[in-house]
Design a protein around this nucleic acid. Structure first.
Length: 802
RNA sequence: GCGAGUAUGGCGGAAUUGGCAGACGCGCUAGACUUAGGAUCUAGUGUCCCAGACGUGCAGGUUCAACUCCUGUUACUCGCACCA
């Protein structure tokens, strides 16, 4: 083992032995909760990307502890999920074993990097003591009518043999394996997430998420405000449509209804071309989500013969079409078609030779004149009876009012967000704690019987039928109804991986509680996650699920705040040296263990903080890493300059105060790279001197400690100081961060011609005088007329001449 | 298609409020020390027609002053994608 590693091990042991980073619930100190997304412990081990965010948060945690905060910086494992299960199947072991091994590897790796986690609070989502509470919370969802079983069309991945959520199947492709997703009917547990759409939107006001994170949430929820309008069918019956553009109601030339919606089935007896319609419905149901949402394909559809609808605003009879671009589960599953002002309807009308009626002034000769073309521009209506001549905005309001007065329309909001498909036909997940009794129906497992444990079996391969592997294990399935005692069967689906990560941050507040998932007292003490960091890829889904989960718990009185996460920030990826995502197949993967062994954990930590803008992707560079090692070597060498004098070196005072201020500011503003650069500047300054005091040296070490905790502790000990981790953060004197004299530029017509040295007392007038004294300035203004002189105190002089 | 983000030397990146563009690091050049150098130290390093001029994707604009603000535009990245 080399010296660097010996030193690192020494201090890691010191922190462990002294429980240096233990977070005390209820402590008098001000609590501060710093969270990083806990990893999925894959077989590949820790990624250098993990190191980036864990180090950033670690640095913040270490600084804030020295500043007197009671910092909670926990770590755990999100270990349910398909990869572990697949690997276990391949190697014929229980996934539990695979996960145990991986967790051990991850734990050792993280410890070798010196992260200041409170390891006493660590857990895995796969621990029965943890998933007991995940199951218990599911039962609360059920008891409050928020969980239900429904026959739904689900996204089915034929390769993974499992059902996927809409989010997992985004784009019609399996998130995990990339296979094309099929549609299957399946009875599924669902959580009523859609009913929280508005709350999840409003809740964002109670957070301090980065703008791009908030936006991601808003886009997923996908709110649109519009009007729902009833439409009569000739010869009886009616249906509703949803539109955001009611101002175009006079332009309706047909309606389109969803082939997978309920409406067409109701109308079927009166349909004249049943065969054609049925065939189209069948055709649609066979299409995968991908085919159906594929752009640049013809607008398919069939005319529903024998049925006409009446445009309620003017009584006009128009045809009804079946078209697969209308989705059965969004809005009302039916739309009004206004080809003049909606490009999709325009194309549909062209394809099927339908009328186009223009109702808003604009050019529709080659394409539709759509809302983005006319909104907010004072554009006027035409062909719209009494509304003709009104602006679009006025008409929107007036037409809605009229339809409301007629009693056939309502203002409504629609949301893209759907209910959460909560079942997975997988072995390696939390069993859904429900029992199906022929007498009583679905009954939750009593609290006293929780957790419902995963059986210790070796056969758990997914089935081709789509049933969970648990269904084949009789001793698991067969049970008694807890209500009536009748023979009953357990639910065999398990929960999605998102379940465990939806509330883990609450458990960290009180991880050993045997009575509750976390006590209200503990949660009130820590209050919220103050600073949550994770990948951009999780800012939509994980964060939304977690917020939904928390809001539900809040509504039933189990957590103290409606939002339990205050600030959310996200980091950029660490790319390979070739500037593309690291992957085995590209052979550009950097293993953090190798770097720690060769250069030390401190070097890796400093490098990953220095490599670039924290929020942006950055390519790996071993050369730059070496540069960081050289910086630490320089810090080590500076020890030879330490003298026995008391206090600080006077000449360093200004820079020292400025550096403290900068490091502090940067660390709380994601400016880790500039914090390190300011420390390099300070070290360079020390290096210019022949000798520095112990206090000078100690100051540098303390400021650098959050980034390079091992070597700084070691050097600090060598000059005879008490451990940094038991000390305090330096306080800067603001008055001493301002230079008494400095150089400022003098411009003539905006071009720098000279610099002058000014003191803090120099006012505008004296700056001007000094500027006009400069030889080079005189040269450039000679023979010209001075129009004016702009002087910004302490910053710049600009002389404008003609 | 919609939404968001990004664009600065050979490279990663700085520039907190409009105020000397290129901090800091890498790389490179020359030199010192050295058996040696992937160590250390010194000097240099945006471009060019070098007393000066030009330079932050491109074209305009506002301003005494623009990487920063405004208008338009291009390229790339990410997210969503027939959402009525």
């Amino acid at each position: 083992m080399n010296d660097t590693l010996k030193i690192e091990k020494k201090w890691q042991k010191y922190w462990e032995d002294n429980k240096t980073f233990k977070a005390e619930t209820g402590s008098e100190k001000k609590p501060y909760y710093i969270l990083v997304e806990f990893p999925y412990p894959s077989g590949a081990g820790l990624h250098v990307g993990h190191v980036r965010s864990y180090t950033a948060q670690d640095a913040l945690a270490r600084m804030m502890r020295l500043q007197g905060y009671n910092v909670l910086y926990p770590m755990g494992y999100d270990a349910f999920g398909a990869p572990a299960e697949e690997y276990a199947i391949k190697t014929h072991q229980h996934p539990k074993k695979v996960v145990e091994q991986n967790i051990k590897v991850f734990g050792n790796q993280m410890k070798s990097l010196g992260f200041s986690f409170d390891w006493d609070r660590a857990f895995s989502t796969t621990d029965p003591e943890y998933y007991k509470w995940t199951q218990w919370q599911f039962i609360q969802f059920f008891k409050h009518g928020m969980a239900y079983k429904a026959e739904t069309k689900v996204n089915w991945c034929p390769k993974c043999k499992m059902v996927l959520s809409n989010e997992d199947a985004a784009g019609g492709v399996c998130e995990r394996c990339g296979s094309e997703v099929e549609q299957r009917e399946k009875s599924q547990w669902m959580l009523k997430m859609a009913s929280y759409s508005e709350d999840l939107l409003k809740g964002l006001d109670d957070t301090n998420f980065a703008d791009r994170v908030k936006l991601g949430q808003i886009n997923w929820i996908g709110k649109s405000s519009g009007v729902e309008m009833d439409v009569e069918i000739v010869g009886g019956g009616k249906f509703s449509i949803f539109t955001t553009c009611i101002e175009t109601v006079y332009g309706i030339t047909f309606f389109v209804i969803a082939p997978d919606g309920k409406l067409i089935n109701e109308l079927m007896p009166r349909v004249e071309n049943k065969d054609e319609v049925m065939a189209y419905i069948k055709e649609t149901s066979l299409k995968s989500a991908m085919d159906r949402t594929e752009l640049n394909k013809g607008k398919s559809g069939v005319l529903v013969k024998g049925i006409k609808a009446i445009n309620p605003i003017n009584g006009q009879e128009v045809p009804i079409f079946l078209g697969d671009f209308v989705l059965g589960d969004y809005g009302t599953g039916a739309v009004m078609a206004v080809p003049a002002h909606d490009q999709r309807d325009y194309e549909y009308a062209k394809e099927h030779n339908l009328d186009i009626v223009q109702v808003i002034e604009g050019d529709i000769s080659t394409k539709a004149f759509e809302k983005q073309d006319y909104l907010g521009k004072g554009t006027k209506l035409m062909n719209s009876e009494e509304f003709t001549g009104m602006t679009v905005e006025e008409a929107k309001e007036a037409i809605t009012n009229k339809l409301e007065d007629m009693g056939i329309a309502r203002r409504v909001n629609n949301y893209k967000m759907r209910d959460w498909v909560f079942g997975r036909q997988r072995f390696w997940g939390e069993p859904i704690p429900m029992i199906n009794c022929p007498e009583c129906g679905w009954v939750p497992v009593p609290d006293s019987d929780l957790p419902v444990l995963l059986p210790d079996v070796t056969e758990y391969e997914p089935t081709d039928t789509g049933e969970s592997p648990l269904a084949k294990i009789e001793e698991f399935v067969n049970c008694k109804c807890p209500v009536c005692g009748h023979d009953a069967k357990r639910e065999t689906d398990t929960m999605p991986q998102w379940a465990g990560s939806s509330w883990y941050f609450l458990r960290f507040m009180d991880p050993h509680n045997k009575e509750e998932f976390a006590s209200m007292d503990a949660m009130k003490y820590w209050n919220k996650v103050d600073w949550y960091n994770g990948g951009m890829e999780h800012t939509a889904r994980h964060l939304l699920y977690a917020r939904f989960w928390v809001q539900f718990l809040y509504n039933i009185g189990l957590v103290p705040n409606k939002e339990m996460i205050w600030t959310r920030v996200s980091h950029g990826m660490v790319l390979g040296a070739d500037n593309v995502k690291m992957s085995k197949s590209k052979g550009n993967v950097i293993n953090p263990d190798d770097i720690v062994n060769e250069f030390g954990a401190d070097t890796l930590r400093v490098y990953e903080m220095f490599m670039g803008d924290y929020q942006m992707d950055a390519p790996w560079s071993t050369d730059s890493l070496r540069g960081c090692r050289r910086f630490l070597d320089k810090v080590i060498r500076l020890k030879d300059k330490v003298n026995d004098e008391d206090g600080f070196t006077k000449d360093l005072e200004l820079l020292q105060n400025k550096t403290i201020m900068k490091v502090e500011y940067d660390m709380t503003h994601l400016g880790y790279n500039t914090a390190i650069s300011s420390l390099m500047i300070l070290a360079n300054k020390y290096d210019e001197l022949d000798t520095i005091t112990k206090k000078d040296y100690n100051l540098l070490l303390v400021l650098l400690n959050p980034f390079a905790p091992h070597i700084t502790e070691e050097l600090n000990e060598q000059i005879g100081y008490r451990p940094i981790c038991e000390g305090t953060w330096p306080v800067y004197d603001e008055a001493k961060t301002v230079e008494l004299t400095k150089e400022v530029a003098v411009q003539v017509n905006g071009k720098v011609r000279a610099t002058i040295t000014i003191t803090i007392d120099d006012d505008e007038e004296s700056m001007k005088e000094k500027a006009l004294d400069c030889e080079n300035v005189v040269k450039h203004i000679e023979g010209k007329e001075i129009v004016k002189v702009i002087v910004i105190k302490g910053k710049i002089v600009n002389i404008v001449v003609k």
